[in-house]
Every structure is written in structure tokens, then in C-alpha cells.
């Protein structure tokens, strides 16, 4: 009989694996003693591993993140948990000024082996300060590794490899993926430095590049499109790591399909999709492209509250299906 696990259970498995196998790992952040905060992804860890290793904290994102960075310089492998990315903005100094630069400004004589887990939690009329996904902002910063798992097993295995990587890692998981299911497998030991993007679907007519939840809706959109248009095949590439980005697979795919769409759940201006499009057209001869690259990102406005506006704001499968029709059927 096949065992299935969900995305949120996979994260929980990742924590347990790390805490069982690495005694220098500890976890710190708001809400860790309450399942209400972080869902099933950390359920009962404090009971299993004790409150000295699973540390719930005052409402102090800045100091708590800095403390995790400091502990990482002194032999610990801490994981900081931010239940919402919006709240993590208080911690921008320790993340950008300290963690990201520590190795460089001391000539490689120290390295903050810290993982900063940030949960994306949006929708449900939560509005502008409870809905942000700021991965592009972190991906802008040299010295940070930024990881955005889409697949269930990646949620676990990339968490483990982030914590075991010697650099500061921003690990971003998305509540909208928590109920995704996949077949359970043994932990795959990955070296984060070598983790690159992965082909989710093989195709010949157009390439879609995305990460995290955007990969989920892209995959769904491709399915919907193919149900009506069986003659087309679409390649889907899941980025997994968005800083630094390895472009090998992306370029190979686009050289084959000659068309591409980047789907990203962040804002369009200076966003991840813009970065990928500009890098791709720099790296290959744009004359091989049969049509202009497409950037499907969020509109440049804060997240609204009213449901009718939310539906306008967030990307949907239908947005992607429409683009596929335009690109493949109407051209």
C-alpha cells in the first residue's frame, strides 16, 4: 500500500529529521508552542524535543532573527520561524546587513549557518499587511540563498538541505500548498549548493517557469488547457532555488520550445519574473524566440481585502490558460 504525505506533514518530517539527527539544531520563533500559529508543520515539536530546543519567543522579530544568526556563528544550526512574511520585515537588518554579508565582510572567516523560514499566508480577506510574498526582495541580496519549494518532498528535503547548508538561507513555504499530497519516500539528502530547477512536465511548444504555489497553478492550468487542446505539449520548470539561480535547464528548454512564460506570485516591478526574462534574453540569441517573453506577476498594488478585489489581484489557473490560448492557438 502506498503512503501519502501532505506538504505540511513533509515540513514536519523535515524538522523531526533535523532535530533527531543534528543535536546542534534548534528552532526559534513566534508561535512555536501553539499549533494555532504554524499549522501542522510544527505540531508537538516542543513536546517531543523540549522547550529548550523549540523556543517560542516574545514579539521581537528583529532580535530573535539576530539571535539565531549569532547562535549560528557559535556552533549552533538554528532555524528561525516567521509565521508571516509581513512580520519578518522587522528583521531586515539582521537578514540583509548581518547574515547576508557576514561571510564576505570577514573574508570568509565565519559563516552564518542559519535558516530563516518564512511562511506565506495570504488570501481570506487578510489585506495588505497579512498577505505579502517578498521572495524577490530577498533574491536581490548577494549572500542569501532563497529556497521556494513547490513539491511535497521538496518541502521536506529542501528544508533539511537548507539547514545543513553553511550559508544563510531564506526558506519560503506557502500555506496554499499545505494540503498538496504526494507519495511518501525516504529523505533524499541534497547539497543545497547543487540543487537546481527541475522539469515538472515535459513539452515542446512553450516553457512555463515558476516556483512555489505558482508552479501548482501552472501545472493545473496546463492540465485544463490540454484537456481541450491535446495536440500541444507544454514544458513546466519549477525553480526550487531562486537565489542564486542556475539557468542551464531553463535555457535548454527555451531553446527547444522557443516561447516562454514566467509565472510569479510576487509583484511585477523588479520581480523574479522580470529577472528571469532579462537573464534569459541576455544569455541566448533573442532571435530564436517565436514570440515575446511573457511576465505574469501580481499587479503592482498592495493586497486588497474585499474578496471581489482579491480575485482580481491573485493569479489564477484561468490567467495562465488564457495566455496559453493566446500564445499557442491565436498566433
Amino acid at each position: 500500500m502506498t503512503n501519502y504525505i501532505t506538504y505540511s506533514e513533509a515540513i514536519l518530517e523535515g524538522f523531526k529529521y533535523l532535530l533527531d539527527n543534528h543535536k546542534d539544531v534548534f528552532v526559534i520563533g513566534q508561535g512555536l508552542w501553539s499549533p494555532w500559529y504554524v499549522g501542522n508543520t510544527m505540531r508537538d515539536l516542543d513536546k517531543l524535543y523540549g522547550k529548550k530546543r523549540i523556543i517560542d519567543t516574545p514579539v521581537s522579530e528583529n532580535a530573535v532573527t539576530g539571535a539565531a544568526i549569532g547562535a549560528s556563528l557559535c556552533g549552533s544550526k538554528p532555524i528561525v520561524v516567521h509565521p508571516r512574511m509581513d512580520f519578518m520585515l522587522y528583521a531586515m537588518d539582521p537578514i540583509i546587513n548581518q547574515a547576508a554579508k557576514w561571510s564576505y565582510m570577514f573574508g570568509g572567516k565565519a559563516n552564518p549557518q542559519v535558516t530563516i523560514r518564512s511562511i506565506v499566508n495570504r488570501g481570506g480577506e487578510q489585506g495588505a499587511q497579512h498577505s505579502q510574498i517578498l521572495h524577490s526582495l530577498f533574491a536581490h541580496i548577494p549572500g542569501l540563498r532563497v529556497v521556494m519549494p513547490y513539491s511535497v518532498l521538496d518541502a521536506r528535503d529542501l528544508l533539511i538541505s537548507s539547514v545543513l547548508c553553511k550559508d544563510p538561507v531564506i526558506f519560503i513555504d506557502d500555506r496554499w500548498l499545505y494540503d498538496e499530497k504526494d507519495e511518501s519516500k525516504e529523505v533524499e539528502k541534497l547539497n543545497l549548493e547543487e540543487v537546481t530547477s527541475r522539469k515538472v512536465l515535459e513539452g515542446n511548444d512553450i516553457t512555463i517557469i515558476s516556483s512555489g504555489y505558482s508552479t501548482k497553478i501552472s501545472k493545473n492550468a496546463i492540465k485544463i488547457f490540454n484537456e481541450a487542446n491535446k495536440n500541444y505539449s507544454i514544458e513546466l520548470i519549477d525553480l526550487r532555488v531562486i537565489n542564486p539561480i542556475n539557468y542551464d535547464l531553463i535555457l535548454k528548454s527555451i531553446c527547444k520550445t522557443k516561447r516562454f512564460i514566467v509565472v510569479d506570485g510576487g509583484w511585477k516591478t523588479c520581480g523574479l519574473a522580470s529577472e528571469i526574462i532579462s537573464s534569459v534574453v541576455e544569455k541566448l540569441d533573442p532571435n530564436i524566440l517565436l514570440s515575446k517573453p511573457i511576465n505574469l506577476s501580481l499587479k503592482n498594488c498592495p493586497a486588497p481585502s474585499a474578496n471581489v478585489l482579491e480575485r482580481e489581484y491573485y493569479l489564477s489557473e484561468q490567467d495562465i490558460v488564457s495566455l496559453l490560448k493566446r500564445e499557442l492557438l491565436d498566433s
Binding site: F26, I28, I55, N62, A63, V64, T65, G66, A67, A68, I69, G70, A71, S72, L73, C74, G75, S76, P78, D93, P94, N97, Q98
Partner: peptide
Amino acid sequence: GTISLAVGAGFA
């Protein structure tokens, strides 16, 4: 910038 890092050393 290093005050919280020193607190982190305390955690370690």
C-alpha cells in the same frame, strides 16, 4: 547590529 547576535551566542 551585533547586540542580538551576542544574545544568540547566549542561546548557543
